[in-house]
Amino acid sequence: MLGIAAAVLFFIAFLINAADISTNDVFTSSNIMLIGLALLALHIAGIGNRWSGPSRRR
């Protein structure tokens, strides 16, 4: 799930950079890309990749 969120953030950062959209200092393409990298690192570390629903083992 975090990997998908990272991919979406990378795509948004690409659109901001490619379209040369002027944003405020918080939502620059490099800041969004860094957030995406952090989410990708969490995904690779194994955080947030397992559904924690009820198990049916017996």
Rank of each mutant, 00 (worst) to 15 (best):
T23R: 00
H43F: 05
A5E: 15
F14Q: 13
S52A: 07
R50E: 07
G46W: 03
S29L: 01
F10H: 14
I47D: 04
A7V: 02
A6I: 04
S52M: 07
L42P: 02
I12Y: 01
S29K: 06
I12Q: 02
N31V: 00
M33E: 13
F14P: 06
T23S: 01
F10K: 14
W51K: 12
V26H: 04
D20M: 08
A7Q: 12
L37W: 10
G46N: 11
D25W: 08
I21L: 14
P54G: 12
N49P: 14
A6K: 11
D20T: 10
L2K: 15
L34C: 03
G48C: 15
V8W: 07
A38C: 07
M1P: 12
I47M: 03
G48F: 11
T28I: 00
A41H: 15
G3Y: 01
V26S: 02
A18S: 13
A38Y: 10
H43A: 02
A7I: 03
P54S: 09
V8F: 05
I47N: 06
I47A: 11
F11P: 01
T23L: 00
I16V: 02
T23G: 00
L9T: 01
S52V: 07
R57E: 04
G53M: 11
L2A: 12
S22Y: 03
G3Q: 03
I21F: 10
I32K: 01
A45R: 10
P54K: 10
A45L: 11
F11Y: 08
D20K: 13
L2I: 05
M1W: 08
I21S: 05
L42V: 06
S52P: 09
S29H: 11
A45I: 08
M33L: 09
L39H: 14
R57P: 05
I44W: 07
